[in-house]
């Protein structure tokens, strides 16, 4: 085009250049963000890997910058394995809890909500998703405290014995809800629930109504249609949501620190090891564990077709 019109200056000459060499424009656009992400993010991930192969001198506490697998071997200590297994169990149960709670919301929003209700459901899920994480966790500290609203409601309805029976269950119970695994689990489910609802709703919305009608025409009851048509088609959305709930639970260290027992999770181990303990190599090795688990998880999810639902 610069061949047709007389050039009016630098802007036009550059435009002509971009026209003749589209890749040059692409390169100009993409280099700054790529350099940033490559240097800052990938560079940091590389630093994490490098540090995890270092070790710490037991006597001086100084990091020894030599390649060793000793730090990784430390992960297999019974105490550290406990942390990893506890974290995995918590992530799995939080994912199940989120899926069960999210389904009716997503199903209703996708199939039945129209007009204003649709917008209300969308905002109703999106606002808690984006609103302050710490504020949400803090709200649960108020709710789960021994003198808080749940204890009060149990007292007012005469269900205190039930609450105490639940808290007496070994393993998940505790002195009060805010110092029990059950409490930690509840807060995790609450905080990550919107991450499950949105992909679930998206995949449910893509279930064609004609298929449901065909199923009904072929004589299926509502229950049969739901089990054999809706659920299988919605499964990728559930898996996509589970990626978030699983990964977010695995890496969180604030919630178990504020609500729960003194037993640690991976995130807490990483934070304490790099901070007060000053053992950056072991902290880095611990941080590699969720990466490996998520890589396996993502590979499985990709097979199940979950990425189309994102």
């Amino acid at each position: 085009m610069s061949a047709v019109l007389a050039s009016r200056g630098l802007g036009d000459r550059l435009t002509g250049l971009f026209w003749r060499r589209p890749n040059l424009l692409l390169l100009l656009l993409i280099s700054p963000p790529l350099i940033w992400l490559g240097l800052v993010y990938l560079g940091s991930l590389a630093a994490l890997l490098v540090q995890s192969f270092y070790s710490i001198d037991e006597f001086s506490g100084v990091v020894v910058p030599e390649f060793t697998l000793r730090t990784y071997a430390e992960l297999f200590n019974p105490a550290n394995m406990d942390i990893i297994i506890r974290t995995l169990l918590m992530s799995a149960s939080v994912t199940v809890g989120c899926a069960v709670l999210a389904f009716p919301i997503a199903y209703y929003a996708a199939r039945f909500a129209r007009g204003h209700w649709k917008a209300a459901f969308y905002l109703g899920v999106m606002l808690p998703l984006w609103s302050s994480y710490l504020v949400k966790v803090y709200a649960w500290k108020l709710i789960l405290a021994k003198e808080g609203i749940i204890g009060w409601a149990a007292g007012a309805t005469g269900t205190t014995p039930i609450l105490e029976a639940v808290l007496a269950i070994p393993g998940i119970g505790g002195n009060s809800l805010s110092t029990s695994f059950l409490g930690t689990w509840m807060v995790f489910v609450y905080v990550w629930l919107p991450y499950m609802i949105l992909p679930m709703q998206a995949s449910l919305e893509r279930v064609p109504v004609s298929m449901l009608e065909a199923s009904a025409d072929l004589g299926a009851t509502r229950g049969q249609t739901f089990r054999t048509v809706t659920l299988p088609l919605a499964l990728p959305g559930v898996i996509a949501g589970s990626i978030f709930t699983f990964s977010l639970t695995m890496g969180d260290y604030i919630i178990p620190q504020i609500i729960g027992t003194s037993a640690r999770f991976i995130g807490q181990a990483v934070f304490q090891l790099q901070g007060t303990a000053g053992n950056i190599p072991l902290a880095a090795a611990f941080a590699v564990v969720p990466i490996l688990i998520m890589l396996v998880y993502l590979a499985l999810a990709r097979r199940a077709g979950a990425f189309d639902a994102l």
Partner: peptide, 18 residues
């Protein structure tokens, strides 16, 4: 997509090394 603790720990490692 990766848990925040990994992003945080990665940056922390990079700051430590550099």
């Amino acid at each position: 997509a990766l848990p925040g603790v990994i992003t945080g720990m990665s940056l922390r490692s990079a700051f430590a090394i550099m």
